[in-house]
Design a protein around this nucleic acid. Structure first.
Length: 847
DNA sequence: CTCTCCCT
């Protein structure tokens, strides 16, 4: 039931434009009925907001309207239509191509990662929003487009928010550009206000009514699976044939609920789990409708947006979802179960009522729904901003804080993004991109992963690290079906590397690689191998494509050639160098096993445990680990780890280490000043009290210790003439002290220290260097000190304190000492036995 | 002793 709209080609001067195909709008689509209104709004405004629920047909019909309008205005540029997901971009393009009667890739085309079906004459181009974003790097004004349609804007992904902000700026520069933001959200006011009161066109969905029921947990505090079972029973009592879709937060809950439901033995029922990590075959079971059994699908959020399950009559909503939130100050991704927003609840409810009237059973009460957030926080408020900031810098956009984001990110998140970029050497303190930063901006990777590649190229281990980085950027290729967990674990064991999950990736790669004939995979054999070994064929293919793409880009941006990873491990390259390369991207992601705490302690006071999916899980804990990604669920898990040598941290991160030096002392045997060194990085002690040659690290302090302990403390093995002089002077001063009854009151170590300090060159702190200097030229002469050099101020007249007293013909030696309380305290005359008789009495009272 | 979902 289609009806054709006759359209008149207005102006013949655009005859050069290719033949215009007749544009038909399926009349049963609500959006077709709003065509006039939408086109009118587009004629009079640069930006139009179209709000339409699923089934309104906006995704397929808006591009055609924009095409019609562009033709009417004689524009020849493209209409770009973005989609959040690759599959959607491809399938929508195919549909629209059919509706417009052209081949895919001709007038209507699409581009997603790895696939480009676009030619010069392509006028309507569907693409993922990531592709459009990438195009801003090559063409800042997006000149190829006259119109851009941003679909599913309500999803508020990082890409969408960035594109909206970018377009807001671009619209001022390009008055000819037309933008349509299309959203399923009721709150179009926000978008409208954002785009300076852009008109909003509402299009109703083509859906059947859905009844709502609230079935909160019973007063006993029943657990989720019993609660779900009760809801399924409730639905079954109503109708035992309509298919049911149940929204649960995660795989574990799905598994538990599946077990409980199986136990209840509902008649004629298939229990089908559905989540993104599920193997292809198991996912496909969800799409096979028309069987005789009633299907109960237990799904995560995949079923909310990404996967549309046909034939659903009943939705059971647990009201829960795992939501990822990046904690910028701890640099940990939290993945906790949360109450979903009202918008998300509405989306889940909308998954039924598409083929007939539906029922939505909510496992919470009405008040909970009313109290829930209106919208899920947009992704930009929940993610690390390093990548976004890098991209903005590379596009030479103004500061992040001034960028017109729909929801501006927090100051904390912004500064963390900057810090991360600085950490990997992409940005200087002042905020300028470095050479590395510019290179990273050209790689379709998280900046941290890109940094690993750059480092690997320097360290000559690029081929291996390319495979590792590719493996880290795809979902785990290992599959672990519920029924065959131990079987899968056993199959995976042969890939496990005992010290590194990153090497495990290489082991898997090289196993898969053997199914290549030259460059191409022998697909059938590989598929069989994957099945036998519990690997995901699809994700392996994706991995392979990413590695090829990256090696091409690395060749262009880093000007380095790559080669396929060798079959023989011995030719992979230096494994230490590989791990050092990884560390360049995730410098602060290491930790050590704290035996007492029984946990890994990481930088910034963080703690983590090895994720059970790691090959290092349950083994004797390596002392130092490198951890890619910390995720907090039931506890903080490190997903992929490798054993590292703590020395690497110091070697690579000396600029982030704090070095503390203490206990310098003169080592007479070595003839040098040694001390202790403690190295701390991110609050972790890497090295505690390592002996260090002090002259290297603290030359001034070492020089002082040398003077005090080697010279003043008599610690030199080769004593020069000046030291004998020192001894003499010291004795002289000491004697004066006794005469004056001022022990220690004249001699000043500090004065002597100063004497040597100004005369001995600053760099000298070893016996050898000193000896060389002292024996050169007249240097030693400078060191011959006098009494005046060793005392504070002037010495009083000592003529009243003779060392020898004459009486008649006899001379008596006199010594002085200050030993209060002792017999030797005071003046001592040395009188020979033969002299006693002549010793004058008055002398003893002298003084 | 286990973790939502996309994208360049």
């Amino acid at each position: 039931m289609y009806f054709a709209l006759s359209v008149v080609v207005k102006s013949p001067q655009h005859a050069a434009v290719p033949d215009r195909p007749q544009i038909n709008y399926p009349a049963d689509l609500p959006v077709a009925q709003r065509r006039e209104e939408i086109m009118k709004a587009m004629r009079s405004h640069q930006v139009v907001i179209v709000v339409g629920e699923t089934g309104s047909g906006k995704t397929t019909q808006l591009p055609k309207m924009a095409y019609e309008l562009a033709f009417e205005e004689g524009k020849s540029g493209r209409i770009g239509c973005t989609q959040p997901r690759r599959l959607a971009a491809a399938t929508v393009a195919r549909r629209v191509a059919v509706e417009m009667g052209t081949g895919l890739g001709d007038r209507v085309g699409y581009q997603v990662r790895f696939v480009e079906k676009v030619q010069d004459e392509t006028t309507i181009k569907f693409m993922t929003d990531g592709i459009l974003l990438a195009e801003t790097q090559r063409d800042r004004d997006l000149r190829q487009y006259d119109t851009l349609i941003i679909d599913e804007a309500h999803e508020r992904s990082l890409n969408i928010d960035f594109i909206l902000g970018y377009l807001k700026n671009l619209l001022a520069r390009r008055k000819d550009l037309r933008v349509i933001a299309s959203s399923a959200t009721l709150d179009a006011g926000m978008f409208s206000e954002y785009f300076d009161d852009a008109p909003v066109v509402n299009v109703e969905g083509r859906t059947f009514p859905v009844e709502d029921y609230f079935l909160p947990p019973d007063s006993e505090g029943e657990d989720l699976s019993r609660h779900v079972a009760r809801a399924v029973q409730w639905v079954t009592d109503l109708d035992d044939s309509g298919d049911v879709l149940i929204f649960l937060p995660g795989e574990r809950e799905i598994r538990e609920c599946a077990d409980t439901l199986e136990g209840k033995k509902f008649p004629n029922t298939d229990i089908l789990p559905l989540f993104a990590r599920l193997g292809l075959a198991e996912q496909e079971r969800v799409f096979n409708i028309g069987g005789s059994k009633r299907r109960v699908v237990l799904a995560t959020n995949v079923a909310e947006t990404s996967v549309t399950i046909p034939g659903i009559v009943y939705v059971i909503d647990s009201g829960l979802a795992r939501i990822s939130r990046w904690n910028p100050s701890r640099q940990i991704q939290r993945l906790q179960i949360e109450q979903i927003s009202q918008a998300s609840a509405r989306q889940r409810r909308g998954r039924c009522g598409r083929i007939c009237e539906g029922v939505c059973v909510r496992l919470y009460d009405e008040e909970t729904l009313e109290l829930a957030d209106a919208y899920t926080d947009p992704e930009i408020r929940r993610s690390s901003l390093a990548g976004v900031i890098l991209r903005m810098k590379s596009l030479r956009l103004p500061d992040v804080r001034e960028f017109p984001f729909l929801s501006p990110p927090s100051a904390k998140a912004i500064s963390e993004g900057h810090r991360t970029l600085e950490e990997v050497g992409a940005m200087e303190k002042q905020g300028h991109l470095t050479r590395i930063g510019h290179q990273l901006a050209r790689l379709p990777l998280d900046p941290r992963l890109g940094r690993m590649l750059i480092e690997a190229s320097k360290r000559k281990v690029l081929d291996a690290v390319l495979v590792m980085v590719g493996g880290m950027s795809v979902m785990d290729v290992r599959e672990r079906p519920q029924e065959k967990q131990t079987e899968a674990d056993n199959a995976h064991k042969k890939f496990n590397d005992e010290s590194s999950d990153f090497l495990t990736l290489l082991h898997i790669w090289s196993a898969v690689d053997s199914f290549r004939d030259k460059k191409r995979f022998k697909r059938n054999q590989l598929r069989k191998y994957c099945k036998q070994n519990f690997l995901s064929f699809r994700r392996i293919m994706e991995w392979d494509q990413i590695v090829s793409e990256l090696s091409r880009l690395v060749r262009d941006t880093l000007k380095v050639k790559t080669r396929p990873l060798a079959a023989d491990r011995k030719q992979w390259g230096d494994e230490d160098e590989m791990h050092k390369s990884l560390m360049a991207g995730i410098p602060m992601q290491f930790g050590f096993w704290d035996k007492e705490k029984r946990a890994y302690r990481s930088t910034g006071g963080r703690e983590f445990a090895i994720f059970p999916g790691s090959g290092l899980f349950g083994k004797n804990k390596p002392e130092w680990l490198l951890a890619y990604e910390l995720v907090e669920t039931t506890r903080v898990w490190a997903r992929k780890v490798a054993n590292i040598d703590v020395k690497w941290v110091e070697e690579l991160l000396s600029h982030m280490c704090r070095y503390r030096y203490h206990s310098p002392h003169w080592d007479e045997h070595q003839g040098a000043v040694y001390g202790k060194e403690t190295v701390i990085c991110g609050g972790l002690t890497l090295v505690d009290g390592r002996r260090v040659f002090y002259g290297r690290v603290r030359p001034e302090e070492a020089h002082e210790v040398f003077i005090r302990e080697a010279i003043l403390g008599d610690g030199l093995r080769t004593r020069g003439e000046f030291l004998h002089r020192l001894d003499e002077v010291r004795a002289e001063v000491e004697s004066a002290e006794h005469k004056l009854r001022r022990a220690g009151g004249l001699w000043s170590d500090e004065a002597v220290f100063d004497f040597f300090h100004v005369r001995i060159p600053k760099h000298i702190c070893t016996a050898k260097a000193f000896q060389k200097w002292r024996t050169t030229g007249d240097n030693e002469k400078q060191l011959m000190l006098e009494v005046e050099d060793c005392v504070w101020g002037e010495i009083e007249d000592l003529s009243d304190f003779p060392d020898c007293v004459w009486y008649g013909e006899n001379s008596y030696d006199v010594s002085y000492s200050e030993n209060p309380g002792e017999r030797t305290d005071g003046v001592v005359f040395e009188i020979g036995m033969d002299q006693i008789v002549d010793f004058p009495d008055y002398l003893t009272s002298w003084g």
